[in-house]
Amino acid sequence: DTFTFTLDGIEVRLHGASEELIKTIEELLKRDIRWEELEKWIREWEK
C-alpha cells in the first residue's frame, strides 16, 4: 500500500507504510506540523 499526503506543498508517498505509522502521521498533520518536524520524526521512527 502507498500512503500519499501533501505537506508544505510537497507530495509525499510512503510505500509499505504500516497502519500504525499512517495513523501517527495523520495525527501529526492535524497539528499543522512542518516538514522539518515530520522528517525528523520519520528518521526516529526508522531506528
Results as ranks from 00 to 15, higher is better:
9 G>C: 05
30 K>Q: 09
38 L>H: 00
12 V>R: 03
7 L>G: 01
28 L>G: 05
37 E>D: 11
25 I>E: 00
38 L>E: 00
15 H>P: 09
32 D>N: 12
32 D>Y: 08
3 F>S: 00
8 D>P: 01
21 L>Q: 09
40 K>G: 08
40 K>E: 08
17 A>Q: 02
47 K>F: 12
31 R>W: 11
43 R>Q: 10
30 K>M: 10
6 T>V: 15
9 G>K: 01
15 H>N: 11
20 E>G: 08
31 R>L: 11
25 I>W: 01
37 E>M: 08
6 T>W: 14
22 I>P: 00
3 F>Q: 00
35 W>M: 08
33 I>G: 04
38 L>C: 03
7 L>Q: 02
8 D>R: 01
32 D>E: 10
41 W>N: 04
2 T>R: 04
19 E>D: 11
1 D>R: 14
38 L>S: 00
1 D>W: 08
15 H>S: 12
4 T>H: 07
15 H>Y: 15
43 R>S: 09
31 R>Y: 12
1 D>L: 15
8 D>K: 01
16 G>W: 08
6 T>C: 14
27 E>I: 10
47 K>Y: 13
15 H>M: 10
2 T>P: 12
41 W>R: 07
41 W>L: 12
42 I>C: 05
46 E>Y: 15
7 L>N: 01
35 W>I: 10
38 L>M: 14
29 L>F: 04
32 D>K: 07
47 K>I: 14
2 T>S: 07
11 E>C: 09
33 I>Q: 03
40 K>C: 06
5 F>Q: 00
44 E>Y: 09
17 A>I: 11
28 L>Y: 07
41 W>C: 05
39 E>H: 15
23 K>L: 11
38 L>N: 00
37 E>Q: 12
14 L>A: 01
44 E>A: 11
44 E>Q: 11
4 T>V: 13
33 I>W: 07
6 T>E: 08
18 S>Y: 03
9 G>E: 04
28 L>H: 05
16 G>P: 10
20 E>R: 07
7 L>K: 03
41 W>T: 08
43 R>E: 05
44 E>P: 02
26 E>Q: 14
33 I>F: 06
18 S>L: 03
34 R>E: 05
14 L>H: 00
32 D>L: 07
3 F>L: 03
10 I>F: 10
45 W>Y: 12
27 E>N: 11
26 E>G: 09
9 G>Q: 03
43 R>V: 09
18 S>H: 05
12 V>L: 06
3 F>R: 01
45 W>F: 10
19 E>A: 14
25 I>Y: 01
43 R>P: 03
18 S>A: 06
25 I>R: 00
27 E>F: 12
22 I>N: 01
9 G>V: 04
36 E>W: 13
18 S>I: 03
8 D>A: 04
28 L>P: 00
27 E>T: 13
42 I>H: 01
4 T>Q: 06
9 G>P: 00
31 R>Q: 12
9 G>T: 02
4 T>G: 05
22 I>V: 10
42 I>F: 08
45 W>N: 05
42 I>Y: 07
19 E>M: 14
9 G>Y: 04
39 E>N: 09
1 D>Y: 14
16 G>N: 14
2 T>V: 14
27 E>V: 12
41 W>H: 11
21 L>S: 04
4 T>L: 06
41 W>E: 05
1 D>H: 15
12 V>P: 00
47 K>L: 14
3 F>V: 02
14 L>F: 06
26 E>M: 15
22 I>Q: 06
3 F>E: 00
10 I>V: 14
7 L>H: 08
30 K>C: 05
41 W>Q: 06
31 R>A: 12
47 K>M: 13
28 L>N: 02
24 T>W: 13
24 T>A: 15
13 R>L: 09
7 L>D: 01
34 R>D: 06
11 E>D: 05
10 I>K: 08
37 E>G: 04
47 K>E: 11
17 A>R: 02
14 L>D: 00
20 E>K: 10
3 F>I: 03
34 R>Y: 04
46 E>H: 14
26 E>I: 14
45 W>P: 01
32 D>I: 07
10 I>G: 01
26 E>T: 14
16 G>K: 06
28 L>Q: 04
21 L>W: 07
27 E>H: 08
28 L>S: 04
44 E>N: 09
24 T>P: 01
7 L>P: 00
15 H>E: 14
4 T>P: 01
36 E>Y: 12
9 G>D: 06
16 G>S: 06
41 W>S: 04
1 D>E: 13
2 T>C: 12
23 K>D: 06
28 L>V: 06
21 L>H: 05
5 F>M: 02
6 T>D: 05
30 K>Y: 06
46 E>C: 13
20 E>H: 10
34 R>F: 06
47 K>W: 12
23 K>A: 13
43 R>D: 04
31 R>E: 06
13 R>P: 02
15 H>G: 05
39 E>D: 08
19 E>C: 07
8 D>C: 06
21 L>F: 11
34 R>N: 09
5 F>E: 00
18 S>M: 02
5 F>G: 01
31 R>H: 11
4 T>M: 09
20 E>M: 12
9 G>A: 03
34 R>V: 08
4 T>C: 07
42 I>P: 00
22 I>S: 02
26 E>N: 12
12 V>F: 14
12 V>T: 02
21 L>E: 07
40 K>S: 10
46 E>F: 15
21 L>V: 12
26 E>V: 14
16 G>F: 08
45 W>A: 05
46 E>L: 15
34 R>L: 07
3 F>W: 10
2 T>W: 11
6 T>P: 01
41 W>P: 01
37 E>R: 04
3 F>P: 01
22 I>E: 02
13 R>N: 15
20 E>P: 06
42 I>K: 01
24 T>K: 15
26 E>P: 02
9 G>F: 04
15 H>L: 11
33 I>R: 03
13 R>E: 15
14 L>N: 00
45 W>K: 03
47 K>H: 14
23 K>C: 05
14 L>I: 15
27 E>L: 13
6 T>I: 15
38 L>Y: 11
24 T>Y: 09
21 L>A: 10
26 E>S: 12
1 D>I: 15
11 E>Q: 06
38 L>F: 15
11 E>N: 04
7 L>C: 08
6 T>Q: 08
43 R>C: 08
6 T>N: 08
20 E>L: 12
10 I>W: 04
7 L>R: 02
37 E>N: 06
28 L>A: 10
45 W>Q: 08
28 L>T: 03
5 F>K: 01
17 A>M: 07
27 E>D: 11
11 E>V: 11
36 E>K: 10
11 E>Y: 05
45 W>I: 06
17 A>F: 09
36 E>L: 11
43 R>W: 09
26 E>K: 15
30 K>I: 09
20 E>I: 10
39 E>L: 15
44 E>G: 06
29 L>G: 01
36 E>H: 13
20 E>Y: 15
9 G>M: 03
31 R>C: 06
41 W>V: 12
40 K>A: 12
2 T>L: 09
8 D>L: 05
1 D>A: 12
11 E>H: 05
35 W>D: 01
44 E>F: 09
42 I>N: 00
45 W>M: 06
18 S>G: 06
16 G>T: 05
17 A>N: 02
36 E>I: 13
35 W>Y: 13
14 L>K: 00
13 R>G: 04
18 S>R: 04
13 R>S: 15
8 D>V: 02
4 T>F: 07
37 E>C: 05
47 K>D: 10
21 L>G: 02
26 E>R: 13
45 W>S: 03
42 I>A: 03
7 L>A: 04
14 L>G: 01
32 D>R: 06
29 L>M: 06
22 I>M: 06
42 I>T: 02
34 R>P: 05
3 F>A: 01
11 E>W: 04
39 E>R: 11
12 V>G: 01
35 W>T: 03
30 K>R: 13
8 D>T: 02
16 G>D: 09
19 E>Q: 13
39 E>M: 15
37 E>S: 07
9 G>I: 03
33 I>P: 09
26 E>D: 07
29 L>D: 01
11 E>S: 05
35 W>E: 01
4 T>W: 07
1 D>N: 13
34 R>A: 08
4 T>E: 06
37 E>Y: 07
46 E>N: 14
47 K>Q: 13
39 E>P: 05
18 S>T: 14
12 V>H: 12
29 L>H: 01
22 I>A: 03
23 K>S: 10
27 E>C: 13
37 E>T: 09
25 I>T: 01
35 W>C: 04
11 E>M: 05
32 D>S: 11
8 D>Q: 04
45 W>E: 03
31 R>N: 13
12 V>D: 00
47 K>R: 13
34 R>K: 13
16 G>R: 05
35 W>Q: 02
29 L>S: 02
42 I>S: 01
23 K>I: 08
46 E>V: 14
10 I>T: 05
30 K>A: 12
11 E>K: 04
39 E>K: 12
33 I>A: 09
25 I>S: 00
30 K>F: 08
44 E>C: 12
16 G>V: 05
18 S>P: 08
25 I>Q: 00
32 D>V: 06
43 R>N: 08
2 T>Y: 10
31 R>F: 12
8 D>F: 08
31 R>P: 02
37 E>F: 10
34 R>Q: 07
42 I>V: 06
3 F>N: 00
38 L>G: 01
5 F>Y: 02
42 I>L: 14
43 R>A: 08
6 T>R: 04
26 E>Y: 12
40 K>T: 12
39 E>Q: 14
1 D>M: 14
40 K>F: 09
44 E>S: 11
24 T>C: 08
37 E>P: 02
40 K>M: 12
40 K>W: 09
10 I>P: 00
10 I>E: 06
20 E>Q: 11
1 D>K: 13
28 L>C: 07
24 T>D: 10
10 I>S: 02
24 T>S: 14
18 S>F: 03
36 E>N: 10
7 L>E: 01
19 E>K: 14
22 I>W: 03
22 I>L: 05
21 L>D: 15
6 T>K: 04
24 T>M: 14
17 A>S: 04
1 D>C: 15
20 E>N: 09
27 E>Q: 11
33 I>H: 03
35 W>A: 04
42 I>Q: 01
35 W>K: 04
